[in-house]
Computed example of a mutant assay.
Amino acid sequence: MTDLQRYSRQIVLPEIGINGQQMLRDSTVMLFGMGGLGSASAPYLAGAGVGQLLIADPDRLELSNLQRQVLYREADVGRHKIEAAAAQLRALNHDIDVVPLQPAAALARLHEADVVLDGTDRFSARFAINAACVAARKPLVSAAAIRFEGQIAVLDPTRRGGCYACMYPPQGEDAERCEDAGIAGPVVGTVGVMQAWLTLRRLLGLADDAGTLHTWSAEHLQWRRLTVSRDPNCPVCGTHDLDPA
């Protein structure tokens, strides 16, 4: 009865219903990066009733993070983000399992996830997460935001399209960081919320967005959808047999 009350606003949707809610309860989602993207996507996944959230981030919270990482509070400054985030997510929904992990430990448990979210801010981390997802045949929802722009890619070469390394060369320079280029809080929040929605769509079987890249200009309030093609010479997904199992 408690579950029906808690999730009634989404259970009433015929596209979700009781069966869909059970699918969410039985799902595990892994989130790499609990910054602006992760602190926006994780509460919606927890609120929706995703049964287990594995959250990974090596950093401690800084005062400057609070401008956009709204999952946290001033009292959390100096704490490990994963510990502070886990406390907030458990307070939101005590029925789900929230597991804080360091990134290396998370990669070792990646096989447990139904969907992986990448909200990190370094190319080196993104390439490592992408390679692990390809090897484990796990769908990846990768997102980034800087200044007034954002992007989200749904990547699963076992279904359709390419992987992250098909879009960006592994030898590329590290990504711009928020402290250097700047970021408006609602921009990264919007992208993080959309990252959560694309994840829920996948878990519920509402759509197969594999092989798509969504870009957003906050200045012009404009979204674009592009296709991510698989590169047969990709050093990551091109070396695996990714035909559907």
Rank of each mutant, 00 (worst) to 15 (best):
G38N: 05
A105L: 04
L107D: 03
L13H: 15
Q21L: 06
A136N: 12
V191C: 09
L4T: 12
R9S: 12
R160P: 10
A207T: 09
L101W: 03
L203M: 05
R177K: 14
D57I: 03
Q222N: 15
W197A: 13
Q5W: 15
R73F: 14
A106G: 03
R25H: 12
L200T: 09
D76P: 07
A135T: 13
T120D: 00
V70H: 08
L242I: 14
P157W: 06
E179S: 09
P103G: 09
L63T: 12
L13R: 08
G38T: 02
D114K: 05
R230I: 01
V236R: 03
A128R: 10
P157R: 13
R137Y: 12
R6P: 06
T239C: 09
Y44N: 01
L198H: 04
W216V: 03
N93D: 12
S142C: 09
R25F: 06
A143L: 04
V188F: 11
S217K: 07
A210D: 04
A136W: 10
S142Q: 07
V228G: 08
A56R: 12
V154P: 05
Q67L: 02
M167N: 06
S27W: 02
A46F: 02
G33Q: 00
W197M: 14
Q69M: 08
V134G: 06
